[in-house]
Design a protein around this nucleic acid. Structure first.
Lengths: 235, 235
DNA sequence: CCGGATCCGAATCGATACTG
DNA sequence: CAGTATCGATTCGGATCCGG
C-alpha cells in the first residue's frame, strides 16, 4: 500500500492526499454553501458518475472533512465538519485564481446555484460594501436566481424560489423587496472583472435591469469585483 | 473531446481543470521557490514518474502557468509566469490546511528543501516578526538545511550549502552569522503548531541548539506559527 | 424519488527501460 | 541533462440495477 501518496512530509502533499482527487474539492465547494443530500450533490455536479460521488463521500468522511447527518423526517444530508469548513480558504483561493483564466463558457457548460454562490463569495469586497448602505440584489443568471444582501454583518446569499436547485433554506429566507433586480448571462463575468463598465453592460444588453434603479449596478460592480490579473494566453 | 472537464462555468472548476491533476500543484509549489530544471524537479518530487513530469510540464505551459527559459551556459529551467505566480495563495492555503491534518511522518516520507521553504512561508507571521529585531536562523531538518532571515522586508529563505538540493542561489546568498542555529526532525511540526512549547522542545531533544542563544527558540516559535485548527479524527 | 452498488470499457497513472 | 517509449496497475466515466 501507501502507493497513492506523495511520499513527502509536507502540508501541501497531505492536503492533496485528502482532497486532491478529482471532484473532491467540488463536493466541498457545494457543501460550503450548506448541507446537501446525495441527490442535491448529484444535481449540482451534473457530470459526476454516481460511483465516484459515493467513493468521494466515503473518503471525505474517513478524512474527517464531512459527516452524514440523518434528517428528522427522512433521508440524510452531508455536512462539512469544522475541519472541512476550514477548506473555505482553499476553495476561495482556487476560485479567485480560476476566475482569471475563464474564457467564454463552453457550449454545454452549466451554471449551478452553489457554484454561483461561492463565486459571489469570492468576489465580495467587504470594504467596498461598507462604503454603501445595506443593499439587496436579486440576480438571475441562466436558470439560477439568487438574492444577495450586503450589510454590516457581511454578505448573505440565498437561492430565490424559481431557481432550479436547492429547495427551501426555510429559516433564513431573505424576504422583502430587492433594491435592484437584474438578469444577466455568463457575461456578468466581464462586469465583475471590470472588463466591462456597468454603463456599457446596460447599454449592450449584457445586463438587463428588471426592477430598481439601474444606477445601483455601479454599486454592485464596486462590491463584487475580481481583478483580471496577469493572464498571457500562449495556447 | 471535452471529456475531462467538469462541464461548469465556474472559477473553481476552471482552476481544477488547469492545475487539478495529480502532481501539478506540487510542481507549482517547487517553482514558487524559484526556477528549477527538469532534474531539480525530479529530485524534489522523488516519486513522480518521469513521463508524468513531462506531461505536466507540457500542460502547465499550454495553460500559461509556466514557461521554459533557456540557460545561458547550458540546459534550461522552468519558471512560473506571472499568471502562475498568482497560484501562491492557492498553494499556501493548501499548505496551511494540510498542516493541520499531518500526523507522524510515514516511514519513507521525505523532506525536501523546497517543501520546507514553502512550509516556512506559510507559517511565517509578519506581525509577530515585527515585534522583534531582524533575526537569522539556520535550521537543519533531516538532510535539509535552510537559512531563514526575518527582517523589515519580510522573510528571506535560502538553502544552506551542505543541504542536499538545489545548488547555489548565487546572488542572494544569506551570509553572515546566524543568531540561532538548530537541528530538528519532523517533530518541529509540533513546535510550529504550539503543541509543544519551545522550552519542552529543548528539554526533550525535539530541537537541538547547535549555536546561539537557546532562548531565541521562543522568538522562532512566535514568528513561525500555524494554529492546529479543528481536527476531529474519525477514522 | 432517495441513496447508493455493480459492471465494464476508456483514460490515466506508475515503474522501468531506453535514447539524443 | 532532458526527456520518450512501453506496459501493467489503477482510476474514471457511463450505464444499469437494486433495496427502501
Amino acid at each position: 500500500m501507501a502507493s497513492r501518496n506523495y511520499g513527502q512530509y509536507c502540508g501541501v502533499t497531505t492536503a492533496l492526499e485528502l482532497v486532491g482527487e478529482r471532484w473532491a474539492l467540488l463536493i466541498v465547494r457545494d457543501l460550503l454553501v450548506g448541507p446537501r443530500r446525495y441527490t442535491d450533490l448529484k444535481a449540482g455536479l451534473p457530470r459526476i458518475p454516481t460511483n465516484i460521488l459515493s467513493a468521494r463521500l466515503k473518503e471525505l468522511q474517513e478524512a474527517g472533512v464531512i459527516h452524514r447527518v440523518p434528517l428528522a423526517h427522512c433521508g440524510l444530508v452531508y455536512e462539512l465538519t469544522p475541519y472541512g469548513r476550514e477548506l473555505e480558504d482553499v476553495v476561495l483561493a482556487l476560485g479567485r485564481w480560476g476566475f482569471k483564466g475563464m474564457g467564454a463558457p463552453g457550449a454545454d457548460d452549466v451554471i449551478t446555484s452553489d457554484s454561483m454562490t461561492m463565486a459571489f463569495r469570492t468576489a465580495h469586497d467587504p470594504d467596498a460594501a461598507a462604503d454603501h448602505p445595506p443593499t439587496t440584489y436579486h440576480v438571475h443568471i441562466g436558470e439560477v436566481a439568487l438574492t444577495l444582501h450586503t450589510g454590516p454583518e457581511g454578505l448573505r446569499i440565498a437561492p430565490l424560489p424559481g431557481s432550479t436547485s436547492t429547495p427551501v433554506p426555510a429559516a433564513h429566507r431573505v424576504d422583502g423587496e430587492a433594491d435592484l433586480v437584474f438578469a444577466a448571462g455568463p457575461g456578468i463575468r466581464s462586469l465583475i472583472s471590470s472588463e466591462l463598465a456597468p454603463a456599457d453592460a446596460l447599454a449592450d444588453g449584457t445586463v438587463h435591469v428588471i426592477d430598481g434603479d439601474p444606477a445601483l449596478l455601479e454599486r454592485f460592480a464596486a462590491t463584487f469585483h475580481l481583478e483580471p490579473g496577469a493572464r498571457e494566453d500562449a495556447a
